[in-house]
């Protein structure tokens, strides 16, 4: 494994830990999109079906997959629990979390139907999860634009996730050169995803670093 991939995976892991730590320590879910978190659970559950088939790739691979599935479900449960422990915060979240995810789900189904490695249930679900991951952050970004303010938790979380995506691109270049391997599907969806993050960071840079607060244009 090359350094870009290890750093990318660690950054992905870090983003999840930041999210869990903040929800638990502050007992607030303000600024976090429930829809994005449900989509990530769906992404991991549909992608890592090979775990259930006992297709062993490596110890690292198995541990990480189990962690991603378990932590994403845990986050959804934490957010649901706040319905009782912090009803005001929960209600506010529901009000601003209004992105229509049915389009993302339908679009990912369509993309999986047209672009896949083979027409088998596992390969189709794998492709679906790749396309869905590329857009799963949109409800979260949409929520930020609507509320017009970004809590530092959410920006740390999005930064760590964006870093993970960005690092996967040099990882693919590395793999192309050292292993002569190339996965058009994963790379195309990955580039789309990175572009979505870049767009967010560009706006964030313009609005926040240049000191105007985060009121994103809609």
């Amino acid at each position: 494994m090359n350094p870009f991939r290890i750093l990318g995976d660690l950054s992905h892991l870090g983003s999840i830990l930041i999210l869990i730590y903040t929800i638990r320590s502050t007992n607030t879910i303000e600024g976090i999109s429930f829809k994005t978190q449900v989509l990530y659970s769906l992404v991991f559950l549909t992608r890592y079906l090979d775990l259930a088939m006992f297709k062993f790739i490596s110890f690292y691979n198995t541990i990480m997959k189990v962690f991603f599935i378990a932590s994403s479900i845990y986050i959804v449960i934490l957010l649901q629990k706040s319905k009782k422990t912090n009803p005001i915060s929960y209600k506010e979240m529901l009000l601003t979390d209004s992105f229509k995810i049915q389009y993302l789900l339908l679009g990912s189904c369509g993309m999986a139907f047209f672009f896949h490695h083979s027409f088998t249930p596992i390969a189709l679900l794998w492709s679906f999860s790749i396309w869905l991951e590329s857009v799963a952050i949109l409800p979260q970004l949409f929520m930020l634009t609507k509320s017009g303010k970004a809590k530092s938790i959410t920006t740390h979380y999005i930064f760590a996730l964006g870093l993970y995506r960005a690092l996967y691109i040099p990882n693919w270049i590395w793999r192309y050169m050292s292993e002569s391997r190339f996965d058009k599907l994963a790379i195309s969806a990955g580039i789309i995803q990175t572009l979505i993050y870049s767009d967010f960071f560009y706006i964030y840079y313009k609005k926040v670093i240049k000191g105007k607060g985060l009121a994103l244009p809609t």
Binding site: R5, I57, R181
Partner: peptide
């Protein structure tokens, strides 16, 4: 160039 899917990635 091998075009096998990147199933080893996360």
């Amino acid at each position: 160039v091998s075009k096998l899917p990147f199933k080893d990635e996360l």
